[in-house]
Design a protein around this nucleic acid. Structure first.
Length: 203
DNA sequence: CGACCGATTGACT
DNA sequence: GTCAATCGGTCGG
């Protein structure tokens, strides 16, 4: 990472998130997910996301309206929605568009760039493991690597110590599109986006 | 209230 | 390829 990008470690501004969800989803590819812990940083380049479109989308947690569990999805864009699933895993989403839309983007995979030793510790990797793409190539894996847990549900990504920042521009031709993974309803919607040709995507 | 099951992962046949 | 882990949300009675 260059010195310049170190100096530009500031959150993406609110308007970035207040746009159509699928536009934001494609634009998230190449952006950096950053967590500051004391003076140190965990950084990963986003390489895979999925859009979930609220009441338009039977696969979305927000499909049937606001509940205690999904209320964060109805906040203004730029907040973090963390949910608990399968009795043991956390996954995180970026809320998009204006308040009450219930739309969000699931972060499915990042490429580790900085703070890899901390990520290995958070993921309980054995010292001899060389397959470090397995640190963050799944929605629950990246949450574990970054230490994202229940108590971070609802935080504002435009201020504070967990945020997204500008990163690399991904050419349109380098973006792959597919059905979303792990859902039953809404398979016909091609709302998964990923960077082609990297070993850091899930699956 | 009980039964079912999930935007997953890792271990194992 | 199959399957258990593990628990809170959701839905039917």
């Amino acid at each position: 990472m260059s010195r310049d990008s170190n100096q530009l470690r500031s959150p993406l501004p609110r308007p970035f998130y207040l746009r159509p969800t699928l536009t934001v989803a494609r634009d998230l590819l190449g952006k950096y997910l950053v967590r500051r812990i004391g003076g140190k940083f965990l950084v990963g380049k986003i390489v895979e996301v999925e859009g979930y479109l609220g009441d338009k989308d039977p696969a979305s947690h927000a499909y049937r309206g606001k509940t205690k569990r999904n209320e964060v999805m109805f906040k203004e864009g730029g907040h973090l929605y963390v949910y608990f699933t399968y009795g043991m895993h956390f996954c995180c989403n970026v809320v998009t568009e204006e308040e009450e839309k219930g739309r969000a983007i699931l972060l499915r995979a990042v490429e580790p760039l900085e703070g890899i030793e901390v990520m290995r510790k958070n993921r309980s990797f054995e010292a001899n493991r060389k397959d470090y793409w397995n640190l963050t190539n799944g929605p629950a894996k990246l949450c574990e690597a970054f230490g994202i847990r229940r108590e971070m549900n609802g935080i504002d990504l435009t201020s504070g110590d967990l945020f997204l920042m500008d990163g690399q521009t991904i050419n349109r031709s380098a973006i792959g599109t597919s059905s979303r993974i792990g859902i039953k309803d809404g398979k016909e919607k091609k709302w998964r986006f990923y960077v082609k040709g990297t070993p850091f995507v899930s699956g």
